[in-house]
């Protein structure tokens, strides 16, 4: 069996996939990657199904040794990364060999990074998903964040079609110097809040606090006046801005509790959820209200570059020769050109 060996774990490095949405009604958090777009791109770059299990890490990445040849791709936040001491670019597919060491350092921009490996991380699924829910010790490797010495089963792979076509532009990441603009939809309890509070939410700057994890990011900023009415517990959604008694909103993310009783003033548009998740502690954010039709058009457009990559890769795939033979033939062709 081929595996990845964790030499240094980084911060909260976990196995994630699409999570367990269908088990939310039994009280299991949805879980899954918090920047779903970045995880999807990483998988696509190495020829995986979009929902294959990847490694997610935050602010400081892991150091990993490969026991067998395979293909990898890094996406999400910008991390100082090298392979055997040589700097390695993100957002493209790379071939690695047995004994190679990948060192992912600090995040230089953004917060959450992803490492996809051809074939996906092969840990045991729990309730249909390999996602780690640390709070419940569920999924991943023993339900925990990875530790030094952990071995993650993967598949050995030596050939990948269209190797040279597998790259994409970097995703949009928040700039620390300027407030990140996050688009919101009015939440189900928007009307419960008075006008001054509604205005405060969209006219002020909020800051991502240090209390931010896979359950949710707490924001600090102008206090929102909490309505007197009480809400019966209802299902939570990813991106909901819940306003607890202290008036400081929390944006609920992947590992949130499945139900909650705090009023939801607004919900982050799905198109901006990954961008929001990429905000580092201290990042200023500004909210902008948009309508539902706009949010849905934006969301539909997200797929386009991914579909285009898939097209390129698939078209590339049918141009012989394939794999290693193609690399060889290109080298030979270049000799004649010189």
């Amino acid at each position: 069996m081929a595996y990845l060996q964790i030499l240094k774990p980084g911060i909260q490095t976990t196995v994630q996939d699409a999570g367990r949405p269908q088990h939310q009604r039994d009280g299991f958090p949805e879980s899954g990657s918090i920047d779903q777009g970045a995880a999807r791109v990483a998988n696509l770059l190495v020829g995986n199904a979009e929902q294959a299990a990847v490694l997610e890490f935050s602010l400081l990445g892991p150091t990993i040794e490969f026991s067998a040849p395979t293909f990898i791709a890094l996406t999400g936040a910008e991390f100082a990364t090298d392979l055997n001491g040589e700097s390695l670019a993100a957002n493209r597919c790379w071939q690695v060999q047995a004994g190679d060491v990948l060192t992912i350092g600090n995040a230089t921009k953004g917060r959450v990074g992803y490492l996809a490996v051809a074939g996906g991380i092969q840990t045991q699924p729990v309730l249909g998903s390999r996602s780690t829910t640390m709070r419940l010790h569920l999924g991943g490797l023993n339900g925990q964040a990875l530790a030094a010495g952990d071995l993650l089963p993967v598949k050995r792979q030596v050939v990948l079609p269209s190797y040279f076509h597998r790259h994409l532009p970097a995703e949009r990441l928040p700039e620390q110097a300027t407030p990140a603009e996050i688009r919101l939809l009015k939440g189900p309890q928007w009307d419960w809040f008075d006008e001054a509070t509604q205005t405060a939410l969209v006219d002020s700057e909020y800051e991502i606090s240090n209390q931010a994890d896979r359950m949710g990011y707490r924001l600090t900023g102008p206090k929102l006046t909490v309505p007197e009415r009480s809400l019966l517990s209802t299902a939570t959604v990813r991106g909901a801005l819940q306003v607890p008694a202290n008036g400081q909103p929390i944006v609920l993310l992947a590992d949130r509790q499945t139900t909650g009783g705090y009023p939801i003033i607004a919900v982050v548009a799905t198109v901006d959820l990954g961008y929001f998740a990429q905000c580092q502690p201290g990042q200023k954010v500004r909210f902008k209200l948009i309508g539902l039709p706009t949010a849905q058009t934006l969301l539909a457009d997200v797929r386009q570059p991914l579909d285009e990559l898939e097209q390129t890769v698939i078209t590339g795939k049918y141009k012989p020769p394939y794999g290693i033979s193609r690399v060889a033939s290109q080298r030979i062709a270049r000799l004649f050109e010189d």
Binding site: Q24, R25, L232, S233, T234, A235, V237, T259, L299, A300
Partner: peptide, 17 residues
Amino acid sequence: KTVIPGYATLTVTFNGQ
């Protein structure tokens, strides 16, 4: 994707794409 009941609500989640 799924349905999630609350006391007096049933939330239906779906793939917006």
